[in-house]
């Protein structure tokens, strides 16, 4: 058993280092932004976008406009092509229902403003996520609604050196909800069960899991940043079976978006949901209460914990699985404390 490690608080001078601001997404428009910004944006462009944009640019470049294609034209052409693909069904989904085209062109652009401007997410330790191959990202869960999970998918797509699609494992409740379930499948997420986790990991996907589940996301505001029980260690045995690294991921900021100060149990049972939260603004202010508070977020990817060093039968050794689960949990808890100690204000960072 690995001994409990003492992780020093304030390891990097107290405050988490702010990452360099991401280059504005639409800075490729000529005449807007500095040269440096523009080149940065061009470098940060994901390959899929580049491929999609290539024919459009070529087509529009043939027009007799002296200064090349205008931004608006390129965008109209791109949107047109996207709509045509969607209306004729000329796109592909994988066995899990993951629709890459839709995720990159609709889901990500919808989440991005929230990520960049509302929560001002800073990512730390992006070099700890492997550029390719299977890996299991394990994170703390909080915030009443799973916005932390959604923001982590944006982080994995936008802030990693190579964009990756985080395939999350979600509760069965998600897949029973009309609209939500279908959207979750299309964004690449699937049911939290060992069969699906192992299928995704062994096909080289980056899989995200929130082992605290409803206990973590639905805990009271008073219990913020206190990790709950980490499930039954199913995620560890899945990682062991596939021999993929476990990446502890600590999210700070999500606890403050909907401070849950009460719970209407009977109403929750009536609606068939695990809890019915009361926050300072919900249900008092009606739909306005659904607006999350603009807390400042940090997402830290910790050092990968390798699992391929164990013997083949390790996944069937419950003691080993429990120990490894505790190690991951402890790692995340300590990182949370360190990030919190470096944070002066929940909203300003």
């Amino acid at each position: 058993m690995p001994e409990a490690r003492v992780i020093p608080l304030r390891s990097d001078g107290g405050r988490p280092r702010p990452r360099p601001r991401p280059a504005p997404r639409r800075a490729s428009r000529p005449g807007v932004g500095s040269l440096q910004e523009r080149t940065e944006a061009a470098r940060g462009m994901e390959p899929a976008d580049a491929v999609d944009a290539a024919p459009t640019v070529g087509e529009v470049a043939a027009l007799p406009t002296p200064e090349g294609p205008s931004d608006l034209e390129a965008r109209v052409a791109e949107v047109g092509e996207f709509l045509q693909r969607r209306l004729t069904g000329r796109y592909s989904v994988d066995d899990f229902g993951f629709d890459r085209d839709l995720t990159e062109h609709v889901v990500m652009p919808l989440l991005r403003p929230l990520y960049e401007h509302w929560f001002r997410v800073e990512t730390i330790g992006t070099e700890n996520v492997p550029l390719s191959g299977g890996a299991l990202l394990v994170a703390n869960h909080s915030g009443t609604l799973p916005l932390d999970a959604l923001m982590t998918t944006v982080a994995a797509h936008d802030d990693l050196p190579v964009p990756r699609h985080l395939r999350m494992l979600a509760a069965d409740l998600v897949f029973g909800l009309p609209g939500v379930g279908a959207a979750a499948r299309k964004a690449g997420h699937t049911l939290a069960c060992n069969a699906d986790a192992e299928a995704l990991l062994s096909s080289g996907e980056l899989v995200g899991v929130w082992p605290e589940g409803f206990k973590g996301i639905g805990k009271d505001f008073a219990d913020r940043y206190k990790l709950q029980r980490f499930g039954r260690g199913g995620f560890v045995s899945a990682a062991l079976r596939c021999g993929v690294p476990i990446i502890p991921c600590s999210i700070v900021g999500a606890e403050e978006i909907y401070p849950k100060i009460g719970d209407l149990g009977p109403l929750a049972r009536l609606l068939g949901v695990p809890y019915f939260p009361i926050t300072p603004t919900w249900p008092l202010l009606g739909p306005l209460g659904l607006v999350p508070l603009p807390s400042k977020w940090y997402i830290e990817f910790g050092e990968p914990i390798p699992t391929d060093t164990y013997e083949p039968g390790a996944a069937d050794d419950p003691m080993l699985v429990f120990n490894l689960t505790d190690q991951v949990r402890e790692n995340i808890q300590q990182t949370l404390y360190r990030l919190l100690a470096g944070r002066r204000n929940a909203f300003l960072g």
Binding site: R29, L63, S70, D71, L72, V76, G80
Partner: peptide, 12 residues
């Protein structure tokens, strides 16, 4: 839609 986009001032 493309024709409209072309006709609009490009703003650059």
């Amino acid at each position: 839609a493309l024709a409209v986009a072309r006709a609009l001032p490009t703003g650059s």
